[in-house]
């Protein structure tokens, strides 16, 4: 398989997962805020932090209010992480390689993109927002189903799965990072109101609430939620589970040693972490998640180097090495 095709499929899957997770984030936040008495402390601001888009947002908007944040995350063209941009990215990546996937997959992505684009033009009224987000999440799930049901287990599918699992692991840690940063008590003795409710919202952002209840059977508490979303071996959006699925896919590819090692390393980090300690200290948790993000990045670089034809892959004579300068005329 051509490196370009593999890279396009990988990014298509990452963009789709990003669109879906962003939709989940906005949807759950809307519900959470309806339950909380004051909308001031958390409000919508955290979503900008979660998605790491402080700077982009600041350029486009003054206030982090509901209208601005929702617009920014859902349909802002200038935000490369918005749902609209993510779908556009997925569509662009597939457009040049659509011959390798089944026709239905292309049509589904195309339809979703066109719907979101139309929505962008008409504006996102709060009353219609919920239906819009639900349709979008459902659309992404339809795609996952189409890939499962219509795409052969070939290299094309492998790169789609790898992209999806890596993005999913990444988005899950992002959600944990900022949400829990707000939730974890600075002073462990202090009992904060609505804490339980907010941890539930973390679970719900990831459609993890039911699965958590089945597995944990206790009231929702910080350390347990962290353990579930980071270390659970069965829940599909848990970080450890995503990384395991990714490693399994990598094994079917040639020259997978470095990427597989990078995946194993970051997975070991997750599994060996002390959840009690992390749950006690917001700073420690934040540092830990930063470490994971670096691990994901190393993993991405290892995949890109092995398969997407970086400079290291090009023949010796073509690498523009600095020391060759004197020979150039």
């Amino acid at each position: 398989m051509l490196s370009r095709v593999a890279e396009n499929l990988y990014w298509m899957a990452r963009y789709l997962e990003r669109a879906e997770d962003t939709a989940r984030l906005v949807s759950v936040n809307s519900h959470l805020l309806l339950d909380l008495p004051h909308q001031t402390a958390l409000g919508w601001s955290t979503l900008i932090d979660i998605t790491g888009s402080d700077e982009t947002f600041a350029v486009l908007h003054d206030r982090r209010n509901e209208k601005n944040v929702v617009h920014f995350l859902c349909v802002e063209r200038e935000n490369p992480g918005s749902i609209l941009s993510s779908l556009a990215g997925a569509r662009e990546n597939l457009r040049t390689t659509r011959d390798v996937v089944s026709r239905e997959i292309w049509e589904q992505i195309n339809e979703m993109y066109l719907e979101v684009r139309d929505q962008a033009e008409h504006g996102l009224a709060p009353r219609r927002r919920d239906g819009f987000l639900k349709r979008l999440i459902r659309g992404c799930q339809t795609l996952t189903g189409l890939i499962e049901g219509t795409l052969s287990h070939s290299a094309a599918r492998t790169f789609i799965e790898i992209g999806r699992h890596l993005e999913r692991a990444d988005m899950t840690t992002r959600i944990l990072d900022v949400r829990s940063g707000n939730l974890l008590p600075k002073d462990p003795e202090e009992l904060r109101p609505f804490e339980n409710l907010q941890w539930m919202s973390v679970l719900k952002s990831l459609t993890a609430y039911q699965m958590y209840r089945q597995q944990v059977r206790l009231r929702v508490r910080g350390p347990d939620v962290l353990r579930f979303l980071l270390q659970d071996q069965h829940f599909p959006r848990a970080v450890a589970r995503s990384l395991e699925a990714l490693a399994w896919e990598l094994q079917s590819l040639p020259r997978h040693d470095r990427a597989l090692a990078a995946a194993a390393l970051v997975r070991a980090d997750v599994l060996e972490a002390d959840m009690q300690a992390l749950a006690r200290s917001p700073d420690e948790l934040h540092a830990f998640i930063d470490e994971l993000q670096i691990g994901f990045n190393t993993l991405h670089e290892a995949i890109a180097t092995a398969y997407f034809a970086r400079l290291e892959d090009t023949p010796r004579g073509l690498v523009p090495a600095e020391e060759d300068d004197e020979e150039a005329d």
Binding site: M1, L2, A6, R255, Y307, D313, T314, R316, G317, L318
Partner: peptide, 18 residues
């Protein structure tokens, strides 16, 4: 997708390498 090396051979970049 293609690259020509100093040996004047044309290669394509694939997931298997050149």
């Amino acid at each position: 997708d293609l690259v020509v090396d100093d040996d004047d051979i044309v290669y394509m970049r694939t997931i298997e390498g050149l």
